[in-house]
Design a protein around this nucleic acid. Sequence first.
DNA 1: GCGATAATCTCGCTCAGCGAGATATTAACC
DNA 2: GGTTAATATCTCGCTGAGCGAGATTATCGC
Lengths: 151, 151
Amino acid sequence: MDDRSPVMGLVHLLRAVTVEFDVLGAEFAARHGLHPTDVRALIHLLDAERAGLRATPGWLGEQLRLNSAGTTSLVDRLERLGLASRSRDTADRRRVLLKVEEKAAELGWAFFGPVIGEVVAVAEDFGAGELETVRRFLTAVLGSVGRARSS
Amino acid sequence: MDDRSPVMGLVHLLRAVTVEFDVLGAEFAARHGLHPTDVRALIHLLDAERAGLRATPGWLGEQLRLNSAGTTSLVDRLERLGLASRSRDTADRRRVLLKVEEKAAELGWAFFGPVIGEVVAVAEDFGAGELETVRRFLTAVLGSVGRARSS
DNA sequence: GCGATAATCTCGCTCAGCGAGATATTAACC
DNA sequence: GGTTAATATCTCGCTGAGCGAGATTATCGC
């Protein structure tokens, strides 16, 4: 657990990657007049859409750890920017359904596209077995962080 | 580059890990009455200390992409919380040197300790060669993100 | 010395997010 | 079926992080 443990290098590396992704997100946000929270919100909304889940303000607020007031103003912002839209759920009329607009997906690709391209290029230097090892490791780490969070 | 590419899973995995780390940091911040920016600042200050660099407000502001006004209030906050302290540089008296207090290192360990423990445990299931593969991959990805940022 | 440059800080402002509570809709229970 | 509780969202007023502009203090080149 001290700094000379061979695993510590990996931990620092993971953290460095995280920080770089954050900075990338923040710069993207600034360049498009968005706030970091807006970017995080779009990521969650796009994820939900891909998974076929129906997103609501309450659900989004939980994901981002915002209270209801903050969530309302976030959704107001996204709507004003034309990135998402509200519509009443006809089944339960207390609920509001959130839909991401095409424009948001375009911004998402503009954001992730170049990074994905670079990572794909990097992956070409690795064999299928090696990539599988990386995948196993990252999956395990993902579980680790989740476990550390809940304890 | 589409969703069925075998590398896309890795990209999503990396993003998921990043998001988890962020949420962990945000929860830690909230639990200790800190702001996410304060946590990021402490990470940079601890890194600088480990690397033997002398941190100043200007340097810290660059790292965090804050302007001078925001940096001043950040340092004020850290000082008020007893996590860092200012001292004039005797060589160049325009400069202010930032020092992290012991308390900050303790909080840092309280933050990263459990996660590190979990990751170390995860790493035990992997051979030395496999860990080296993961290290190579993450190092390459770190370069990728940096390249995507600057383009 | 004197102007130019650099590092930090002060002031006033905007706006994200919070707490408290209002409003509207649905579910539960006798 | 009507009253009460629970749920989802929104409104209002406020705090405080971070910004732009500019003041302040220290150093450097001439």
